[in-house]
Structure formats: structure tokens, C-alpha cells
Design a protein around this nucleic acid. Structure first.
Length: 533
RNA sequence: GGGCCCGUAGCUCAAUGGCAGAGCAGCUGACUCUUAAUCAGCGGGUUGAAGGUUCAAGUCCUUCCGGGCUCACCA
């Protein structure tokens, strides 16, 4: 967490933190690292008393370029059109395609406790004329812009190329137009059928005044213009943009040389890998991104993203591993430490900050959150697998007092996470299943004392006089073990082996209480009778 | 080809240039009511390799090996 506070020592005066995103498709979990870093920086700045504004841009004036997300009949008409001018394909009431997809990530951010002071929409900014000064400067200095592209990015545009994309007056596309002349007030553009492979221009050409929303700066220039327009002082960016000669380098050079303003402090960050590989929903790495959000609540997801330094790639492999339970455990450990409890092992520097920045609510009472009761994930996973058990009651029993409202919310969130984890990610060893078909082969290894114990337990399975609930069974188990002089641990082990085929399991009393009584009696007798070796 | 990151215990990761450490897993033991919990203890390393700087290198420099991501049209 030191990384965020280190950052605060490198700046002075009020800060404007900015990021932006093109609302062209769905949000995947890896793309949430940037926003979490952004939000963490803002919280750290404010914690150090630095006046900070968080801006988030919606680049909805960018051309539509994702064919797969358009209905087939809309492809020819809308590919290349500004996202804000494409109708909502989902037909669920949004004003445009851009509004629909932007809403998805705005909602996702809110779910993670990320609340920019202002979302700005480029489709609204351009028509106000706010960008006109930058458009004019860029066109006046077109030769300089071309030189920067060549020098910084090794991109050679034709001499007639100008850094502006006009929105075609006839077909409305912005991705297909090229400006080849500029007379100081008007730009000459052509809407070419073959300018880009993914969209077809209509062939229109003509002179147009490229202001007030009739044209759009290319991304690198638009980025630099945003910095000047909003006075941005800090802006993180992913490694795809941060690479040498990449988008950020070009925008930096344009900011300095064309718009004559020092670019904001750059915070490059690495991506998130699944099992050491690029995140993929189709390559069998087993971690469809949207599923992770269902299983990892906001606080744990924030922790995952903000704990490592931004320039470290995160390797997160939830599939068949205990990565998710450990994430919860680490969160709980940080909570305990923040609450002032003794915890095992070393604590990272600034662990209180890591904990408080992981909380969804930036204004949360950190102390109250830290002391709130949180049932351990793995334990909950076991309890939840025993049919007929009142998990909430057991959790309250563990706590020793009723859960308050906040604790109940945490519990329910965790129970949902546990359920999702068991369904989608949990390793086999975490799953409990009763061997209903027959006695597990492992029962052959039971010794005489254990068999005697099982016999002694038989009366508890009696239809009328037997144990009636989990607690009754639990008591019967201890009594039977004591009567045979068997240590409780070995008694429980005998039961787990007989019913689950494994050395351990969830609370045995409740497990047995959940099963059919005749079945329990039969199984106890079978296991007790097994011939040893 | 350019750039970035990584390589330290079985796994995930720490270590202002100053005695290589945690968590989890593992092993051993304790436990008459949370039994995958809890408590106590143990083992585990040529820090990818080679050179260099230094009183001192996991850390800084050079080269190499390996892994990964990313850019190279647009955004």
C-alpha cells in the first residue's frame, strides 16, 4: 500500500485524477484493476489532506468498431459511427449503444465503491465547443503532429493527413473520414469506402467547419486535450497504453509540444493473469471474468487489485485452487490486525491502509468494519454443504452473540460467495459428498476400537429413541467415544471415513442428522463389520 | 523487432544495499462438545545462471537463460 502514499508525496497542491474508457463492449474483471488503482490513489491523496477531484471520461464519440456486438442488419449502417449515435442494440431503454455500455461500467464501478466526482461524455463535450481551441491548434500544427507521430511512434502519415476526423455529413460515420486540407477555418474531408477494413465510408467529400461537434480529434490528441481542458494532474494507464512509442508516449509529446502543457503524472499498471496466462473466457483457463465478480465480493476484489504494486502483474488462479478462500483469509487477517488483535505472521507495511482502502465505502467506520464478525470462508464452505443445517445459527453460535445488521449482511454475502465458489471453482477436496452407493473402500482401514465405537453409536440411529438433531448426534458421538475409551478425534475420523470416504469433514453431528436414519444405521453396521485387511 | 513485468520454501508472495522471512500447504503433538476449528512445535533455500561494483548484493550494473504480458493500424 506504500505505493499509493508514496505517490502522494510526489505531488503538491490540488489534484485532478482522470481516466477514461470507450464504452464499446462488456467490462471484464481484469479491466477493473485500473479503476481500483484510480480510486485508491484518490483515497490516499484525500487521506493526506490533498484536495482531489476524480474525473472519469466516457469516450463515446469514438467510432463503433466491434461488429460482434451489433445486430447483423446494423453492421453496414453503424460500423464507424460514433458510439453515442448508435442505437442501443439491447433495446432496454438506453438512449444509445454508448449509454447502454457505459451504464454497465458505471454500475460496476459503483458496486466496487468507486464514485467519480463527475463522469464526462465526449459526445457532450464536443458540441459545447470546449474542444474547438484544441482542434484549431492541432490543425494549425498538423505538420508538427505528423512529425511527432513519426518520431515517437514511427508512424508515417501522408503529408496531407490532418489530425482530425470529421463526422460525415451524409452517412454520419467518423471512423471512415480523412481530412486532407485545412484553410484555417474549414477542413476538406473525404469519407472513403476503404480507409479502414472494419467500416465502409460513403464516398462523400467536402469542406466543413470542424467545430462544435462536427469533428473529433484522434485518440492521442483527444487525450492530451482532455488533460488541458480539465487540468489533469495524475492519470494511470494500463500497459497497453504505457508501452514505449505507445499511446501515452504520443499523448505526452503532443501535450508538451502541441498544446504546450506538461502531461499528468503517469501511473502505469500491469494486467491480471489467470494462472499465469492471459485472461481468457474461451481458452479453458476456466475463469470467465463475469463469474469472478459473483464469487469475489467488492472488498476482496479491491484487496486483490490494490495490494500489489501497480507495476506488478497479478496472477490470480481461482480454478481448482484455494486462491479465493485465501483472499478472504487475508482480508480477515488484515481486519483483525486493524482491530488491534494479534495475528499470525508478518503484516505488510501500511496494513491499516490496505484494509481501509479495500472497504467499499470510502467513508466507512474503519474501526467498526475491522471488528465486525466474519465467518472464515473455508469453514462456511463446509457448513453450507451439510443439508438441513441452519448455517446462520451455527455462525451466531461461533460468534457467541447475535449478528448485528452489518454482520448479517457480511454473512449473507459470504454464504453466496461460498456457494458460487463451490459450484464454479472449488477443488474436489473442498466438496463434500456422502457415499450413498456403498461403504467407501477407505473404511477397510478402521481399527477395532473405531468399529466398536460405531457399534456403540448404533442406538443413536434408533427410529424412536435416537438422536433427533445435530446437537443430539454430537452428544451421542462424544458419549459413545468416551464409553469405548476412544479419543474424540479418532471417533470423528471413523464417521468421516464411513460416510464420506475421507479423514475429515463438516461437523459430524449435523451431517448425520441430515441423513436418513435407516441409512445411517445400516452404514454404521456395515462399517463396523468390515474385515480388516 | 521495441517496451514492461516476473524468476526467492511445494503454492502465493515479502524483505530503505545490512543476520533470507511470512501466509497457506506439509509433518509432529495436544484437545470431552467450532474437529478441514483451536493451540503448541518442526522441517523446508546455491534467491534462474555467470560476471562486475561494494566492507557488505535477493536488492545496484552488464550479459545470458527461462516465463509472461504488451505495442508495432485504431483506440
Amino acid at each position: 500500500m506504500d505505493w499509493a502514499h508514496e505517490l502522494t508525496t510526489r505531488v503538491s497542491g490540488p489534484q485532478v485524477v482522470n481516466d477514461s474508457k470507450t464504452p464499446s463492449g462488456t467490462v471484464h474483471v481484469g479491466s477493473l484493476r485500473g479503476p481500483v488503482i484510480l480510486d485508491t490513489i484518490v483515497r490516499a491523496l484525500r487521506a493526506d489532506g490533498i484536495e482531489t477531484t476524480l474525473l472519469y471520461g466516457v469516450d463515446d464519440f469514438d467510432p463503433m468498431d466491434a461488429q460482434a456486438l451489433l445486430t447483423p442488419d446494423a453492421v453496414e449502417r453503424y460500423m464507424g459511427v460514433p458510439l453515442a449515435h448508435v442505437p442501443d442494440q439491447a433495446g432496454d431503454g438506453h438512449a444509445s449503444y454508448a449509454r447502454h455500455h457505459a451504464q454497465v461500467f458505471i454500475d460496476t464501478f459503483a458496486g466496487l465503491g468507486i464514485h467519480p466526482d463527475r463522469y464526462y461524455w465526449m459526445s457532450e463535450i464536443y458540441p459545447t465547443g470546449a474542444m474547438d481551441g484544441y482542434i484549431r491548434t492541432a490543425l494549425d500544427r498538423a505538420a508538427q503532429v505528423r512529425e511527432i507521430y513519426r518520431r515517437v511512434a514511427n508512424v508515417q502519415h501522408p503529408d496531407a493527413w490532418h489530425p482530425i476526423s470529421v463526422i460525415c455529413e451524409r452517412c454520419g460515420k467518423v471512423g471512415t473520414t480523412i481530412v486532407t486540407d485545412w484553410d484555417g477555418e474549414r477542413a476538406f474531408y473525404e469519407c472513403r469506402p476503404d480507409l479502414v477494413a472494419w467500416a465502409n465510408g460513403c464516398g462523400m467529400s467536402g469542406w466543413v467547419t470542424p467545430f462544435a461537434g462536427r469533428a473529433k480529434l484522434p485518440w492521442n490528441l483527444e487525450w492530451a486535450a482532455q488533460w488541458s481542458l480539465f487540468g489533469v494532474t495524475i492519470e494511470p494507464c494500463g500497459k497497453d497504453l504505457a508501452t514505449a512509442g505507445g499511446s501515452r508516449d504520443r499523448a505526452d509529446a503532443i501535450a508538451r509540444e502541441v498544446f504546450e502543457r506538461e502531461p499528468p503524472l503517469k501511473v502505469p499498471y500491469e494486467f491480471v493473469n489467470i494462472g499465469g496466462r492471459k485472461m481468457s473466457t474461451s481458452k479453458g483457463h476456466g475463469a470467465p471474468a463475469h463469474q469472478i465478480v459473483e464469487v469475489v465480493p467488492p472488498e476482496q476484489l479491491r484487496l486483490l487489485f490494490l495490494r500489489p504494486r501497480p507495476n506488478h502483474a497479478i496472477d490470480f488462479d481461482p480454478d481448482g485452487t484455494d486462491a479465493i478462500p485465501r483472499l478472504f483469509d487475508e482480508f480477515d487477517r488484515l481486519a483483525a490486525a486493524t482491530a488491534g488483535h494479534e495475528v499470525k505472521g508478518e503484516l505488510p507495511a501500511g496494513f491499516e491502509s490496505i484494509f481501509s482502502y479495500s472497504l467499499r465505502d470510502a467513508a466507512a467506520d474503519v474501526e467498526a468494519e475491522a471488528v465486525a464478525f466474519r465467518p472464515p470462508f473455508a469453514h462456511l464452505a463446509l457448513l453450507s454443504q451439510v443439508p438441513g443445517v441452519d448455517v446462520a445459527a451455527l455462525v451466531e453460535a461461533e460468534k457467541g452473540s447475535p449478528l448485528d445488521d452489518r454482520e448479517r449482511a457480511i454473512f449473507e454475502q459470504r454464504l453466496a460467495a461460498v456457494t458460487g465458489w463451490l459450484e464454479a471453482y472449488a477443488p474436489e477436496r473442498a466438496r463434500i459428498s456422502v457415499a450413498e452407493e456403498g461403504l467407501p473402500p477407505e473404511a477397510a482401514a478402521l481399527d477395532d476400537d473405531q468399529r466398536a465405537f460405531l457399534v456403540a453409536l448404533l442406538p443413536a440411529a434408533d427410529q424412536t429413541a435416537g438422536a433427533s438433531n445435530g446437537e443430539g448426534w454430537q452428544e451421542a458421538i462424544f458419549r459413545a467415544a468416551e464409553a469405548r475409551g476412544l479419543p474424540a478425534g479418532r471417533a470423528f475420523q471413523a464417521l468421516y471415513v464411513a460416510f464420506l470416504g475421507r479423514q475429515n469433514g463438516p461437523r459430524a453431528g449435523w451431517l448425520l442428522a441430515s441423513l436418513d436414519r435407516a441409512f445411517v444405521a445400516r452404514r454404521l453396521a456395515e462399517a463396523a463389520a468390515t474385515i480388516d485387511r
